[in-house]
Amino acid sequence: MTGLLTEEILSCIGRQSDPQREIVTRRDIRKYAIATDNRQAKYLAGDVAPPLFHLHLFWDVVPLSELSPDGVSIDTLLPRFPLEKAMAGGLDITYHKPIKPGDWLTAARTLTDIYEKSGRSGPLIFYEVLMEVRNDEGALVVSERTTRILR
């Protein structure tokens, strides 16, 4: 343990983004299905969304002027970390209900953990973000836990 994580950084655990509410359209499902090389008729027709469609629905739509020079949108949920080189991370997703055209869905993201480990080539910082997608009745539709590693 090299103590890279300051009190200030650790105090960001629990931070939440503003909930984002979006409507699912047949057109968006069709575009996503085609772009992912899908070949099942129900998705290509937009009758129901394929798994992982929530990623498309809730990717941050930011103005061009707010993208970094490499074209990436800056995740305002995260503090500035002392390590910046992103390594492979992981996803853990649970699908509770199917997503269909006309559904209004709301995503809430929480920074649930930040911790440090020593890797073979130096310290690593891990952080976890939980995204919960709910319908207008408040029922969970998708929950997704992302773990990212910085070195």
Binding site: T36, D37, N38, R39, Q40, P50, P51, L52, A88, G89, G90, L91, D92, I93, T94, Y95, P98
Partner: peptide
């Protein structure tokens, strides 16, 4: 990640649904 889902989802067809995934 989508292709990891699709290979299972095509196999399932209308016989069932994916309930979760863990991948990196």
């Amino acid at each position: 990640g989508d292709w990891l889902h699709q290979v299972v989802d095509e196999w399932l067809g209308d016989a069932g649904m994916i309930t979760g995934i863990e991948y990196s």
